[in-house]
Amino acid sequence: MAAMSVYSFLEIKRVRYGLMLFCALLALSSVALLLSPFKPTETTYYTLKEPFARSEKSWPYVFGTDSLGRDVLVRVSHAFFLDLGVGLVIVCISGTIGLTLGIIVGYVGGIIDGIVMRIMDVLISIPGFILAIAIAATLGGSLWNAVLAVSMVSIPIYARLSRGLTLSIKENLFVTAAREAGLSSFKIMFRHVLPHVLPIFITQATLELSNAILYFAGLSFIGLGAQEPTPEWGLMMSVGRKYIREAWWFPTMPGVFMFLTVLSINLIGDGVRDYLDPKKMLRV
């Protein structure tokens, strides 16, 4: 059955395109990082060279060089892993906290539920990015502070989602039956509620991954995230935009990479949602 579901998952067109795009980006970045003779932070005198300009080493500067003479391809590829990794870390942190919080307050209810969800309401009523800026600025601009800021901003989404799902799952007789059988609340949440929350939660998390990447890159762009010389898309665009007239590739290439990565994740996430949605399953 598992093999069949993976197969039918791949049957969805968007998933195929998304996966193809993602794999292409992954392959390009891996090849550039492993085989290219350039280092992402190594500065040279060959500043702002155009794409495919000849270099002293075995490879040409495929995407050109930046204002400090660093190879843009290698930096962009490095940033692919950095941004993707950071995105995953953010989703893991905020997802775990949000999921746990949501299931607990949804199951227990009462005053705790009221307090936690009001806090979530306050958090969600402030535009996410502005809140992230405020938190990052308070903590001070650094990569890990930006991760923390974006994670905190994302928690309410997961908490609300899992609380809502928990409330509806709680209505099922099998939860009452588990209570009747004498199971502890923790065990009921873990064995009976969590497995039913998880599929929908994962769908949401996939879609949120691209948001996390965008937020993080955004913070870096305004100087509150990754700091020089770390290769990061937002930071590269921020530095490169001053050179857009004489060296378009310097700010454009990180932007294109980021765009394609986010697009591929969204396509896959959309597919996951279609796949796990029982109403749409009949149509696939």
Partner: peptide, 16 residues
């Protein structure tokens, strides 16, 4: 003291 519930269709967790 145990209870047998009315609805056999939802008294068992479908995933277990």
């Amino acid at each position: 003291i145990r209870i047998v519930f009315q609805d056999p269709y939802s008294a068992l967790n479908p995933r277990l």
